[in-house]
Design a protein around this nucleic acid. Structure first.
Length: 577
DNA sequence: GCCGTTTTCGGCCCGACTGTTTTCAGTCG
């Protein structure tokens, strides 16, 4: 994507300018980069339609940066940026990623000790050269050394589904302390981001010291990084960082708002407060010295003339502008979900019987599920050939008959489905004769992940042309922390999906969460419907729906955008179309 | 470099903690 290329270039320039001690420009470059990342339209398209003026309409892009973008679009590079890159060693800005090293210190290390990269830094630490520098000391050197170790381990982010239970356990323990009034997690965890950098916990108490002593001595804590009366940071035994803030109970609303973020959202919100003659901090919304709002988050948003908004929306990607106009979406909720359209049984690579899956799904209050075992080519997952598929149909028919005679509360309908492989040439793993008999056909790519963008795009688009395909499963194929998305022109896929009225999946499995939030938003803007499915391989996976719903919420999805919010009757009508 | 319901010039989010200094700069979220 050209947009990401340009944004990355601007971020890189911001880093270099910051290293050189240039004021304000880095901030401007980063803002422009963010503005570009948030676009749903292609930079080329904007430039073609409206020229440089169009580029200047992008938030954060002014005359100068618009010229640079124009140059990049036309020539593939920017002369000024090339010169800037040459002025510092390549990779020096990477050192800023290390905790406790920022632009200033990194540049001092470069100027005084000639440190240009990670190995130079390691060598300097070994010889204790850093501790001798003015403004540094033994502690600084130790902190940099630790930061370097953590950096080398890689900054793999923790899955939401892994972080949430740990955070809940810590909160459970804190709740038992009588000095604590209220406690909540905040940060990216509360925003339900797909991965979590660190766990943020907010506590209200009038005895902050006791709280901090208790917290830093928890069994989960491996090392204390910082400890103050209002703010402490520790490293947990599993390697995650955990920050705790202690505030007064009456500051809870302002504190929760502040500590939930995102950072970008907060900055924008504070700017908005200033424009209205207020000041916003974690201690409240102030007019002069007078605190005018702080008890609840809603109070703060309302005072600023905004609609109240769910944490999932707080990313500074247009939610504040929408809130001002009263145009925030009515986000889908877990209770709106009426069924789950992708799951596996013992027939292929699932561990439970169809009956068990149906029974557990009924307990979740669903009206229907689709059993979508793998097709024959997925031999490794015991994919079903036509014969076994027919056998499965018989079993489903028998189960449905039995379920129909049961009491109404527990009645659930099992739909005959399949997760059909999209073969390398874009044809499907079953003949049309079989496909037309399936009630839910989910097409999926499970091979050739390394093929070219063109080839993968053609392959998927061709599969979507098949009139029996209903849903495209996990459209980008990524697995978080393990496998990147395959090369794919998602816009082209969206176009076909829109034209052929195909449904795109939000796979709720915690390491997939595919489509991503930004993709969901783009798809919905085009009027494409989505389906939030767990891809469960065991009945214990069925509750993963909550992660898929969170993902869709971050993509501004409403109930009307999601096909498995439809009643069984309505859903069948859509599928048969 | 960007931006304007205080401004076309002069601002640019706000506060906590640490380490190295003796009053504060750098870093972080």
């Amino acid at each position: 994507m050209i947009n990401q290329e340009v944004a990355d270039l601007l971020y890189e320039m911001a880093d270099i300018l910051e290293l050189k001690g240039v004021e304000w420009k880095p901030r401007a470059y980063r803002k422009a980069a963010q503005g570009i990342e948030n676009l749903s339209e292609d930079l080329y398209a904007i430039y073609k339609k409206q020229g440089r003026k169009g580029l200047q309409n992008i938030p954060g892009v002014g005359e100068a940066i618009a010229k640079h973008i124009e140059e990049y679009l036309l020539k593939g590079k920017v002369k000024k940026f090339e010169q800037l890159k040459k002025s510092v060693p390549k990779g020096l800005s990477n050192l800023m990623e290390i905790t406790s090293l920022g632009a200033k210190k990194t540049f001092v290390l470069y100027k005084k000790l000639g440190i240009r990269n990670l190995s130079d830094l390691k060598e300097a630490i070994k010889r204790h050269k850093i501790a001798k520098l003015a403004g540094f000391g033994i502690k600084s050197e130790q902190n940099i050394s630790r930061g370097l170790e953590i950096f080398k381990k890689g900054q793999e982010r923790t899955l939401l589904s892994d972080a949430l239970p740990i955070a809940e356990r810590i909160i459970f323990k804190l709740k038992k302390l009588k000095e604590i009034r209220r406690v909540s997690f905040a940060g990216s965890l509360r925003r339900m981001k797909e991965t979590i950098g660190d766990v943020d916990v907010l506590v209200t108490s009038s005895k902050p010291k006791q709280v901090m002593d208790f917290f830093t001595r928890l069994a989960e804590v491996k090392r204390v990084v910082a400890k103050g009366t209002t703010k402490s940071t520790v490293i947990l035994r599993n390697g995650m960082q955990c920050d705790v803030r202690v505030l007064k109970d009456e500051e809870y609303g302002a504190a929760l708002q502040y500590f939930t973020g995102s950072k970008e959202h907060n900055i924008k919100l504070r700017e908005l407060a200033i424009k209205k003659g207020y000041k916003l901090s974690e201690y409240g919304l102030f007019k002069g010295k007078k605190r005018i709002a702080c008890r609840t988050e809603d109070e703060i948003y309302k005072k600023l003339g905004l609609q109240i908004m769910a944490p999932e929306l707080r990313t500074n990607t247009g939610e504040l502008e929408a809130a001002k106009k009263g145009k925030l979406p009515h986000l889908i909720e877990l209770k709106d979900i009426k069924g789950d359209l992708q799951m596996h049984s013992k027939y292929s690579d699932g561990v439970d019987t169809i009956a068990k899956m149906a029974e557990e799904a009924a307990k979740l209050g669903y009206d229907y599920i689709a059993i979508t075992d793998h097709s024959k080519t997925r031999a490794i997952a015991h994919g079903l050939d036509e014969k076994r598929l027919r056998k499965q149909w018989k079993e489903i028919d028998a189960l449905n008959k039995k379920l129909k005679s049961q009491n109404k509360e527990r009645r659930i309908r099992i739909l005959k489905g399949s997760e059909v492989d999209i073969l390398a040439d874009g044809t499907l793993d079953y003949s049309d004769k079989i496909l037309r008999k399936l009630e839910v056909v989910i097409a999926a790519v499970h091979s050739g992940y390394k093929s070219s963008k063109r080839k993968m795009t053609d392959r998927i688009c061709k599969a979507l042309e098949n009139k029996y395909v209903h849903i495209l499963a996990h459209p980008t194929g990524r697995i978080i922390n393990r496998r990147p998305a395959y090369e794919l022109d998602l816009n082209a896929v969206f176009e076909v999906a829109k034209e052929k009225k195909k449904i795109l999946e939000v796979d709720a499995f915690p390491d997939r969460l595919d489509l991503k939030d930004t993709h969901v938003r783009a798809a919905i803007e085009k009027g494409i419907k989505i389906s939030i499915d767990t891809d469960a391989h065991s009945y214990t996976h069925l509750p993963y729906m909550v992660y898929g719903v969170a993902q869709a919420r971050r993509g501004w999805a409403e109930k009307k955008d999601v096909v498995n919010c439809l009643s069984l009757k309505e859903l069948l009508r859509v599928l048969r179309r």
